[in-house]
Amino acid sequence: MDQGNLKFTKTHEWVGVEGEIATMGITDFAVNQLTDLVYIELPEVGSNCEAGKVFGEVESVKAVSDLYSPVSGEITEANTALVDDQSPLSDDPFGTGWITKVKMSNPAELDLFMNADDYRKFCESEAH
């Protein structure tokens, strides 16, 4: 996905929107912080997620990080290929490394997030 069209959270998730469906993933910055990823836990398709609440987790050798859902809605798809091979998360985080697709129940939630430029600035400030 073109990063210019994405929205970003302070917890380093990204969201891309097509119609009422939001695609979510984690950013390259987050993946670099975690180093070698070894595991991902995905939500069940058909379950509901809630903005700001945990919907899954990623694990590296040195850390487990919760994944916070940027938006509320129903999970319509989960990228199950990641369960066996987490490399797309680091190799192509905004493309084949997508994590879930959600049918949004409250698209207004998107207004809270950063655009790509602001997110880069936010990351720079976090890195220091």
């Binding site: 070698d36 070894v38 595991y39 694990e59 590296s60 050798v61 987490q86």
Partner: peptide
């Protein structure tokens, strides 16, 4: 230097 990443994956 055992490989911890392989171990955990």
């Amino acid at each position: 230097r055992p490989d911890e990443v392989i171990a955990a994956r």
